[in-house]
């Protein structure tokens, strides 16, 4: 009887942990929605931070994340292509694969410190490009790993068929292999975009923040996440309300991009 009881107990405890995990998700989402929506108004989307809105912050955050993607996606994809299609099986490729895997989990604040030393201190101040570079550094290893893994799923026969047709290596890679892995890679790009658009730590002392609307990447650049950090710690009620609305908008954006990524891959199957 004892072992049956123990069995019951463990099963109940496991189920309970799942319930606890899910409750936290709902707790966070419900409080965030409640606080965020009650402070939300249409006017925050048409005003800049200096007038109590988040328009410049949204534009700034997206600008940096999109530019970072424009740097990271080609580099990351090409690196993934090298690892899987050119260097596969070589010592060098396996070292690079491992290093890139490790880089993927490097603390984001350290990447901020690194970018500060190279792109902020020598140029005399915070600038948008530094933020873009910090985000790109975070994104590259994720894209490498996704591309590498997705290309690995492409059947060898497809490559052989391409070779049999006399296609040159890079044509086979681009027009057959990458095309076959398109959906998986797209999902990976979307998920990594969702991850970097919510990043705060690497931006704190690279692009910092700007209260005004700005598209000048050589100056301090407006950031939604850095603003949330600042606003939430101000004592006045209106700053906190704005922080909640901004946090709500950020979470909706991140979760939507995330779900979109999952939806893309689901549709393929």
């Amino acid at each position: 009887m004892n072992r049956l009881l123990l069995n019951k107990l463990i099963l109940i405890l496991s189920t309970l942990s799942a319930v606890i995990g899910i409750s936290f998700l709902f707790w966070i989402l419900i409080t965030l929605s409640y606080k965020g929506i009650s402070a939300l108004s249409f006017s925050i989307f048409t005003h800049d931070l200096v007038e109590g809105g988040i328009r410049n912050l949204l534009v700034g955050q997206f600008t940096m994340a999109i530019l970072a993607s424009l740097i990271a996606v080609p580099i990351g994809m090409m690196a993934g292509i090298y690892l899987r299609e050119y260097g596969h099986g070589t010592k060098l490729a396996s070292i690079i694969r491992n290093l890139s895997d490790v880089m993927m989990s490097a603390p984001s604040i350290v990447i901020g410190v690194f970018v500060f030393a190279l792109f902020v201190a020598p140029f005399g101040g915070y600038n948008g490009w530094a933020g873009v570079i910090a985000l790109a550094i975070m994104m590259i290893p994720i894209i490498i790993s996704t591309t590498d893994n997705m290309l690995a799923l492409v059947p060898q026969e497809l490559r052989e068929a391409g070779m049999a047709l006399g296609g040159s290596k890079h044509k086979i890679v681009l027009q057959i292999v990458v095309r076959a892995a398109k959906v998986g890679i797209t999902t990976g790009i979307l998920l990594s975009f969702a991850r970097i658009i919510g990043e705060t730590a690497p931006l704190l002392f690279t692009s910092a923040n700007n209260q005004f609307f700005s598209m000048d990447l050589t100056e301090q650049f407006p950031s939604l996440t850095v603003s949330i950090y600042n606003l939430a710690t101000y004592p006045d009620e209106s700053s906190r309300d704005l922080a909640w609305s901004a946090a709500f908008v950020l979470t909706v954006i991140v979760l939507c991009i995330n779900l979109l990524g999952r939806f893309v891959i689901r549709n393929k199957k």
Partner: peptide, 23 residues
């Protein structure tokens, strides 16, 4: 449940911090 757990992982860390501070 799996999807919910994965979404929980996708929420930016600043949201956890802010929620933690106020709630």
């Amino acid at each position: 449940v799996s999807i919910a757990i994965e979404l929980l992982a996708a929420i930016p860390s600043i949201i956890y911090g802010m929620w933690g501070l106020f709630y």
